[in-house]
Measured scan of single mutants.
Amino acid sequence: MTEYKLVVVGAGGVGKSALTIQLIQNHFVDEYDPTIEDSYRKQVVIDGETCLLDILDTAGQEEYSAMRDQYMRTGEGFLCVFAINNTKSFEDIHHYREQIKRVKDSEDVPMVLVGNKCDLPSRTVDTKQAQDLARSYGIPFIETSAKTRQGVDDAFYTLVREIRKHKEKMSKDGKKKKKKSKTKCVIM
């Protein structure tokens, strides 16, 4: 069974824990209790493949930012979460993405942009803004509501699919490099 290491990042209060708990335990946590770091595991079937999701729910508070490099190193894919009623959390996505790329030393890291709290009427981040940002990053965008469960499975499952595509691409690139290195030079 394939294991996928997913990391949920975003500013404090955007609903990272609520999304994760909704996926794992099928219930909505409405009281806000700032996370330092929590880890969850769940076995699911995605596109006919049974897999184990190892999900790291991270601290959004700035005082825990020193811990970010460590979990970013171990993560295979990242859910970059903002709240649709919090423009600052949307603007912060850029910083999370840049930090992930720096730590992973790669421009090509599996990510999904997630606009959470889409059940709320007080939207300050337009869907088109988020779609445009995701398009500019070359990553999928999904709106979710941890409260109603809308888009929750889709967000995590899409990230797994992005990781699969990335692994497939990397193995193809690896095979191309191996083929090239088999060419021999004969000096007579």
Score class of each variant (00 low, 15 high):
149 R>C: 13
144 T>M: 06
127 T>F: 08
154 D>V: 05
130 A>V: 14
170 M>G: 05
155 A>I: 13
132 D>N: 04
159 L>I: 09
167 K>A: 06
151 G>R: 04
136 S>A: 14
159 L>S: 00
149 R>L: 10
166 H>T: 07
172 K>E: 15
155 A>H: 01
127 T>P: 08
142 I>K: 08
128 K>H: 10
170 M>W: 12
131 Q>Y: 04
130 A>R: 03
165 K>N: 11
137 Y>R: 04
134 A>S: 10
139 I>S: 03
188 M>G: 15
141 F>D: 00
166 H>C: 12
167 K>S: 07
153 D>G: 09
126 D>L: 05
166 H>P: 01
155 A>D: 00
169 K>Y: 03
155 A>R: 00
145 S>K: 11
158 T>A: 13
137 Y>I: 07
165 K>T: 06
151 G>I: 07
158 T>E: 11
125 V>S: 10
154 D>S: 09
128 K>D: 12
137 Y>C: 14
139 I>V: 07
152 V>S: 06
166 H>K: 02
167 K>C: 02
127 T>Q: 10
167 K>V: 02
174 G>S: 14
169 K>S: 12
162 E>R: 02
146 A>S: 01
135 R>C: 13
174 G>A: 07
134 A>D: 05
145 S>F: 05
130 A>P: 04
155 A>Q: 01
134 A>I: 09
155 A>K: 00
134 A>Q: 02
185 C>L: 02
156 F>M: 07
137 Y>M: 12
156 F>E: 00
170 M>R: 03
128 K>P: 09
157 Y>S: 15
132 D>G: 05
128 K>V: 11
151 G>N: 15
166 H>Y: 09
126 D>K: 04
136 S>I: 07
133 L>G: 04
149 R>G: 09
131 Q>M: 12
158 T>N: 06
135 R>H: 06
152 V>Q: 13
152 V>T: 06
152 V>I: 12
187 I>E: 15
165 K>A: 05
131 Q>E: 14
178 K>E: 14
128 K>T: 13
159 L>R: 00
160 V>H: 02
139 I>G: 02
166 H>S: 04
126 D>Y: 09
133 L>E: 06
183 T>H: 13
188 M>C: 06
156 F>R: 00
129 Q>C: 04
130 A>Y: 15
137 Y>S: 13
158 T>C: 09
169 K>A: 03
155 A>E: 00
183 T>G: 11
166 H>A: 05
137 Y>E: 14
188 M>W: 06
173 D>A: 05
153 D>W: 06
152 V>W: 15
147 K>E: 13
132 D>K: 09
138 G>R: 01
132 D>T: 06
132 D>A: 07
129 Q>Y: 13
154 D>T: 09
153 D>F: 09
153 D>K: 12
127 T>A: 11
154 D>Y: 05
127 T>I: 10
166 H>M: 14
128 K>F: 08
156 F>W: 10
188 M>V: 04
161 R>T: 15
135 R>S: 11
155 A>W: 00
175 K>L: 15
173 D>F: 05
137 Y>V: 12
181 S>A: 13
151 G>V: 03
154 D>C: 05
135 R>Y: 05
164 R>W: 03
133 L>Y: 14
135 R>M: 08
152 V>H: 06
188 M>F: 03
157 Y>V: 14
162 E>W: 01
184 K>G: 15
178 K>M: 08
167 K>R: 14
134 A>F: 10
156 F>C: 03
181 S>L: 01
162 E>A: 05
167 K>I: 01
187 I>K: 15
146 A>G: 09
178 K>L: 07
187 I>Y: 13
186 V>G: 15
132 D>M: 04
153 D>E: 13
139 I>L: 11
164 R>V: 07
181 S>V: 07
144 T>Y: 00
178 K>T: 15
159 L>A: 02
146 A>Y: 00
154 D>E: 14
165 K>E: 05
166 H>N: 10
127 T>K: 10
125 V>I: 03
141 F>W: 06
128 K>I: 09
131 Q>T: 07
134 A>G: 05
131 Q>D: 08
152 V>C: 09
165 K>P: 00
135 R>L: 11
186 V>A: 15
145 S>E: 10
185 C>W: 01
169 K>L: 07
150 Q>V: 02
133 L>D: 04
167 K>H: 07
131 Q>C: 09
133 L>H: 05
173 D>L: 07
153 D>H: 10
130 A>K: 02
137 Y>K: 06
178 K>N: 13
154 D>G: 06
167 K>Q: 07
126 D>W: 05
130 A>L: 14
154 D>L: 10
177 K>L: 15
138 G>C: 01
178 K>C: 05
158 T>Y: 08
135 R>P: 03
157 Y>E: 14
186 V>S: 15
132 D>H: 04
173 D>V: 02
145 S>Y: 03
166 H>L: 07
175 K>Y: 14
152 V>E: 06
131 Q>W: 04
151 G>F: 02
164 R>P: 00
133 L>T: 09
156 F>D: 00
160 V>I: 11
149 R>E: 11
160 V>C: 03
155 A>V: 09
153 D>L: 13
145 S>L: 01
178 K>H: 14
182 K>G: 10
